[in-house]
Amino acid sequence: MSLFELFLWSFVVLALVATVLISLYGIAKRPNLVKKLIALTILGDTANLFVILFGYRLIYPVAPPVLAQWSESGVKELLRKAVDPLPQALVITAIVIGMAVNIFIAFLIIQAHRLYRSVDTREIAKYGGE
């Protein structure tokens, strides 16, 4: 593997790590609840991308793990160039369930806005929450 390929691969991994750190900053430090929701979604997407990245193979004739037509040689060919199917199966449910949980959080934010007339955590903290 050449140096440039290694550099690009490390760049991809480190950029994802940086995205995770930025979204953690957004979750922890931004006062607005809607902004916290956006940061939470970015964190979830980046984590999913990481999981997929672990199942990838850095070769050129690479294929998704689906067989077009069954034959003995076709299966051998597929095993030579297919990526790992297990992380993909885990991530599909994670995306849809994460969306459902996000909808639940959004409804909670609307409820907070009805009660306190604000979505700013500093404003809400004035009402005496511990």
Partner: peptide
Amino acid sequence: VISAPTELR
């Protein structure tokens, strides 16, 4: 430090 995987797990 980081090497890309080329083999199936």
